[in-house]
Amino acid sequence: MDIIQILPQLLSTGITFGAIYALVGLGFVTIARASQIINFAQGEFVMLGGMITFFLLNKIHLPYPLAALFAILIVVIIGFLLHLLVIYPLRKASLPILLMATLGASLFLSSASALLFGTLPKALPPFSARAPFEIGNISVSPQSLWVLVAAFLTLFSLYLLSHRTLLGKAMEASSTDPLGADLTGISRNLMIFLAFGVSAGIGSVAGIFITPIFYVSYHSGILIGLKGFIAAVLGGWGKHNGAILGGFALGVLESLSVAFIPSGYKDAIAFIVLLLILYIRPKGILGSPFIDSRRW
């Protein structure tokens, strides 16, 4: 009885969180579509997006839209630097080394942001009117709708980028067939470089949209990043719509689980989902263009 009553509310929270995971997952997918690298510092882009906007808004007193724009620019530059300083020198390295390097970069970014912006958790003001409105007996905050809109706009623009422009095609080619891309004169390093920029941009957008919903502190990046990654794997590794679907599925699962098990276990749900999906169907719900007999 009790559970039935709170279910719709949990569902709406789950959809909000799902949109967040979907946005973060899209960042992973962008890089994976260009280079098959998994960037563990993706979560830090999200954290930095929120942190830098907060800093520009409250310390430098820029207007909100300008602060957000500058934050996205700064994070994109950080993404480019990450590629130039870490990924590019290691372009011929083996997998564990790349993995460790991105984890090291993640450690550096999170601890440096603790140093620069302080260790206290931070929250941005919401974008529009503060009062949550009611649909039936569910209360929905306007910010959740903003996050949904952001997720679908990002999906749409990524779709345009990868299906309607030559640049997107070139990025995809450099991942699916490196030799072919080289032969047709596509600079693979440039494509990966651009993919890092785009992915950092998506991450910072996600950060700016979610910081009004929950507090972001310097160490929250890694968990958000991992959950976004799990969302991308769940939906189908390497597919934009897969990341969106996986994000919503994960968000809803996580928030519904609160009704049945103690809320402390909430963080474990995502990882249990990861283990299950990797065991039962590693391709994810929608299937994956990258996971084939070569890698599995």
Binding site: D267, F271, P282, R295, W296
Partner: peptide, 21 residues
Amino acid sequence: RPILKLKGYFLALATLGFGEI
């Protein structure tokens, strides 16, 4: 038994997930 059929990044992720759980 279930995890080790994975390779590369996905094995790393699965073991990381076990650590977090």
